[in-house]
């Protein structure tokens, strides 16, 4: 009967879910598996420049799993330094971003309601131009004869330009600037939902405004802080464009190392291993976040 097989067709609901999953499968999971596979291979002078894991020789399938790349990463100090320095730069940039964006989000959430949509749009507005162009704009601002140095010399604060471009300072500016909207939006969404009577209750019970902020507003915005920090921290760790264009010789970030392995050394297996380890490092905070969030959700059904 027609009816009986129609029942086994997926309904509209599952179709909607299937589309993004299919997308993820095609463009995330499959590339991931390919990279994972390459990381267990060795490099070769061929196109593509690595040996296949499965080889057909003498009427037998030979599987070669090569752990050398991972061992190499562990032995060579350069990679560890690059990983740690990436984590450090991303962590400091996340904290700076949080300190700058919290007041912005707070002010937006407390602005008159007819202003809020305009303010939100202004936060997102810079993303309408190319990311690369905005980073180039920062190069123009920060270089030795750039706007910032000229302004400081004109104001009499500096006698001669200081090196700002191609330094860690420029990298922090770039990351904080680029990821600001990702911090502001979750913080704003959280803060705007706060019940103002809780703040009033705290004032009423004798807590001055600063203490009310620390004991009521800040703990209640914890989820926004975590979400914003994750959205800034995770992509910052693997950031390539900003350290490449704004950073100097001393800024060692794993994204740059990865690029060099792939394109300068053409050592795909080592590069894949670098990528896999970075993913593993980032999965830990993501899992912690997920665990934390699901516990929070469980508490507030």
């Amino acid at each position: 009967m027609i009816h009986s097989w129609l029942k086994h067709l997926p309904g509209g609901r599952s179709l909607i879910i299937v589309v993004p999953y299919l997308w993820m499968l095609l463009f995330f999971l499959i590339p991931f598996i390919i990279v994972f596979k390459i990381s267990f291979s060795t490099s070769a002078l061929s196109i593509p420049p690595y040996r296949e894991l499965l080889q057909w020789t003498d009427e037998a399938v030979k599987l070669t799993v090569h752990f050398g790349n991972y061992l190499f990463l562990m032995e060579d100090r350069l990679y560890w330094v690059a990983y740690l320095s990436s984590l450090k730069i991303a962590a400091i940039a996340t904290i700076l971003c949080l300190l700058i964006c919290y007041p912005v989000a707070y002010a937006m959430a407390h602005a008159p309601s007819h202003w809020r949509n305009l303010l939100l749009m202004l936060v997102v507005l810079p993303s309408w131009t190319s990311f690369l162009i905005r980073v180039y704009a920062w190069m123009g601002i920060l270089k030795n004869n750039g706007y910032l140095n000229n302004l400081l010399i004109w104001a009499g604060i500096l006698d001669e330009p200081i090196q700002m471009l191609n330094s860690s300072f420029a990298v922090y500016i770039g990351i904080v600037y680029a990821y600001m909207p990702f911090m502001i939006l979750p913080l704003y969404t959280n803060l705007v939902k706060h019940d103002h009577s809780l703040v009033e209750a705290s004032l009423d019970l004798g807590a001055p405004p600063w203490k009310t902020f620390l004991t009521v507003t800040l703990p209640l915005s914890k989820n926004g802080v975590i979400a914003g920090s994750m959205l800034v921290f995770i992509p910052s760790v693997g950031e390539f464009i900003i350290p490449e264009l704004l950073g100097g010789p001393e800024t060692l970030m794993i994204g740059k190392v990865l690029w060099q392995e792939f394109f300068n050394n053409r050592d795909w297996p080592v590069a894949s291993a670098v990528a896999m380890v970075m993913l593993a490092l980032l999965v830990i905070p993501i899992m912690l976040f997920q665990h934390y969030q699901s516990r929070e959700m469980g508490q507030n059904p």
């Binding site: 809780l198 009033e200 705290s202 009423d204 004798g206 807590a207 914890k222």
Partner: peptide
């Protein structure tokens, strides 16, 4: 006198109990 220095306490319509 600001609310946090008044010897007055209020029970809010929504009760405003701190959820955390």
């Amino acid at each position: 006198i600001p609310p946090f220095r008044r010897p007055v306490n209020m029970m809010f319509q929504s009760y405003a109990i701190f959820p955390h």
